[in-house]
Design a protein around this nucleic acid. Structure first.
Lengths: 349, 349
DNA sequence: CTGTTAGCGCGTTCAA
DNA sequence: TTGAACGCGCTAACAG
C-alpha cells in the first residue's frame, strides 16, 4: 500500500496545468487579455473581466510565481536569518515578522546560522540574486566582520538588522534599550544588597554583549566604585557553562549576585545552585534576560528582563517593507530602540 | 542622515546585472556554453570551464533562481506550515527540517496558521502553483476537514504531515507514540496513588488530542475501572484556562492528579495552584507534554513527556525529499511513529 | 567541444 | 477594447 493520491495526480498536472495560456484558450481570448483582466486593468471590459475571473476561480488559477518574479524582478519574499530558532526571543521576532509579511502578501524564508559565521556567509551568498526582495538578520556570535552584509547591501539587497547588529553600519537596525535595562537590573541587585555581582556574558564581539556589559559596568561604577566585579564568558554549551559557574561559586570570594546576559546562563546557574545547595536568593540573587514567561514558575521565580520580541519583529519588518517599497525612512527609523521590561521576582528578593 | 549605501547601489545593479549573458559576452562565448560550464557538463573542455568559473567567481555570479525555477519547474523550496512558532515543539521541528533542507540545498518557507482554519486554507491556496516543491504541515486545531490538503495533494504537491495529522488520509505522516506514552503517564499517576485524574485536553478534533485522550482512558479503564475520570477542554487562552482549572479545583471532588495534553495547560495549572495554595505533588500531582527542558526548574520540577521534535522534523523532511526525488517510500515510511520520552520529576512524587 | 534556437509563464509594448 | 510579439534568465534539444 503506498500513496495512491500522488502517482495519480502527477500526470494530471502535466497535462492540465492551469496557466494563462490554458485560460485564454478555453475562453477564446489572447493570453495578454486574460493577464490584464486578472490584474483588473482599466482597458478591459467588465464583461470580459467577469468571464475571465469566473473561469480562473473555477480552475483555481494561481499565477506561476517564478514567471511572475522573473518578469517583474520581484520575489514577493523576504528572508529572516537568525542564529537559532528554539529560543523564545527569536521565535517571537519571527512571529512578528510573519504578521507583517502576511499583511503585505509576502512570503518568509527562514535561515538558521547556528552561530556559525561561515554558514551565515553562505546564506547571504545564496540570497544574492533576486531570491528575496530583502532580508532581516540577527548576526551569529562568531560573526566579527560585516563584509558579507555590506556586499549584499551594495549589491542592492535591502537589509534590516535586529537585536544583534553592527552598530557602525549605515543600515537600519532595531534594538532594545540593553544598556539602560542592564544598568537597572544591576542597580536592582545592588540595592537588594549584592556586593559581588558577576556578569555571565555571551561572545564578547556581539553588539548586545557589549551593550549589556556596558550597562552592568556603569551600575557597578556608580554604586560600587572600585568594588568587586567579574565578567564570566559563557558559551552555547550547557555543560561547559555549568563547569564555569561551578568554578565561580567555588572560589573564596564567590559572587552574591548573577546578572545573566541570556536565559540559558540563568538556567545553568540554577542547575549549579541546585547541585551545590546554594540558596537563591539568600546566598545568590539572579536576574536574567529571558523571553520565556514560565520562568515565573521557577524555584524561585526568576527575575527576568523581557525583550519585546514580537514588536521587534513587527518593527523590523515594517521598516524593511518601507525600504522595499522605496518609501523614505524617517530619521528615527534608522536606529529604533524599543524598551525591554523587567519583572522582579523571587530570585532577587 | 539616511542609508548612504542603498541609493548608491541601485543604479549599480541595474546597469551591471551579472547573469549568463554578461559572462558570455565578457568571455566571448555562447550563453549555453557558459551555462554548461558552470553546471560542470562533461561536454565542455576543462580550460573553458576554468575560464568561466574564474569570471563567475570574480563577479560573484549566482544564477537567477526564478529563471531557473521557471525553466526546470522546480523551486528548490519547501514550505512548513505550523499553528504557532513560539512553542518549543514546533520550533524544534523546524530546526530539524531546516537541517535536512540545508543538506539538500533547499530553502524553507514558514507559514503560521495561528490555529485558524481559514488562514490554513489560504496558505495552501498560495502554494498551489509551483512556489514550493513540497510541504510539511501540522494542522491547526480548528481544521476539521482535509479537503484543502487533498486538493493540493491531487494537484501534485507532495505533502507530509507531522504530529497533528489526518489519520485516514493516504499521505505520509510522522507522529509520536501518543497513546502509549499517555497511557504510561496516566498509569504512573495512578501508581503514585492518584484516584481522580483529570485530563486537560486541546480541541477534540485534533488527532493528537484524540490519541492522548485515548491513552489516558485506557489507563483509567485498566486500573480504575468505573472510577473517577474527567476530560477538561482547555483553549489557547491562558485566562480562560485558569478559570476552568480554578472551577475544577473548587469542586467537592476535585482531582488529585492532572494529565495535561500540552505544556501551556500545566503552566496554567501551576498558576492556579500557586494562587490557591494547592501543594504539588502532595495535593495534586501533575504530568504534562512539554518540550521545554527548563521545566526541570519549576517548583516543583514538572514531570514531562518530551516529544522528539527535532527528530520529527528531520524525519518528516527526509521523507518529503524522498517523495520530491521520486524515490519509492518504504511501507514503514508512510506512518512513522517516533517514541516520546517521559521524565518523572517532583510534580508526581 | 561549442553555438544556435526554442520555450518555461508572465507582463508589457506596440498594433489594430 | 483586444491581440500579437517580445523578453525576463535560464536550460535543453539540436546542429555542427
Amino acid at each position: 500500500m503506498g500513496c495512491a493520491v500522488l502517482p495519480l495526480t502527477l500526470s494530471f498536472v502535466t497535462m492540465d496545468q492551469v496557466n494563462l495560456k490554458r485560460l485564454a484558450k478555453e475562453l477564446g481570448l489572447a493570453i495578454s487579455t486574460v493577464s490584464r483582466a486578472l490584474r483588473d486593468s482599466h482597458e478591459i471590459s467588465q464583461e470580459t473581466k467577469d468571464r475571465v475571473q469566473a473561469l480562473a476561480d473555477k480552475l483555481g488559477f494561481q499565477p506561476n510565481p517564478h514567471a511572475s518574479s522573473l518578469r517583474k524582478n520581484k520575489s514577493k519574499t523576504i528572508a529572516v536569518i537568525v542564529p537559532e530558532i528554539e529560543n523564545n526571543f527569536f521565535s517571537g521576532a519571527i512571529n512578528g515578522i510573519e504578521l507583517i509579511a502576511k499583511q503585505k502578501g509576502y512570503h518568509v524564508l527562514i535561515y538558521l546560522t547556528h552561530e556559525d559565521f561561515q554558514l551565515e556567509k553562505g546564506i547571504l551568498q545564496l540570497l544574492q540574486n533576486g531570491r528575496v526582495d530583502g532580508l532581516m538578520i540577527s548576526v551569529s556570535n562568531t560573526t566579527t566582520t560585516a563584509d558579507h552584509l555590506i556586499a549584499s547591501s551594495q549589491a542592492g539587497l535591502p537589509i534590516v538588522f535586529f537585536d544583534r547588529v553592527f552598530e557602525d553600519l549605515d543600515v537600519p537596525m532595531i534594538t532594545t534599550d540593553d544598556i539602560e535595562v542592564s544598568f537597572k537590573a544591576t542597580e536592582y541587585l545592588i540595592k537588594k544588597g549584592c556586593k559581588k555581582i558577576a556578569f555571565l556574558s555571551m561572545a564578547e564581539n556581539l553588539s548586545i554583549s557589549k551593550r549589556r556589559h556596558s550597562g552592568y559596568q556603569k551600575a557597578i561604577e556608580k554604586y560600587l566604585p572600585g568594588g568587586w566585579h567579574k565578567t564570566v564568558p559563557c558559551t552555547p554549551n550547557d555543560e561547559q557553562n555549568r563547569q564555569v559557574i561551578n568554578n565561580l561559586m567555588e572560589e573564596p570570594d564567590a559572587p552574591d549576585g548573577i546578572f545573566a546576559a541570556v536565559e540559558k546562563f540563568a538556567i545553568n546557574t540554577y542547575q549549579v545552585c541546585n547541585e551545590r545547595k546554594i540558596c537563591i536568593p539568600q546566598q545568590l540573587k539572579v536576574i536574567s534576560f529571558s523571553n520565556y514567561s514560565a520562568t515565573a514558575l521557577f524555584n524561585p521565580p526568576l527575575s527576568s528582563i523581557i525583550q519585546p520580541a514580537y514588536e521587534i519583529g513587527r518593527e523590523a519588518a515594517a521598516i524593511l517593507f518601507k525600504i522595499i517599497e522605496n518609501k523614505k525612512l524617517l530619521t528615527s527609523e534608522n536606529k529604533v530602540i524599543l524598551p525591554s521590561q523587567i519583572i522582579y521576582r523571587g530570585s532577587t528578593n
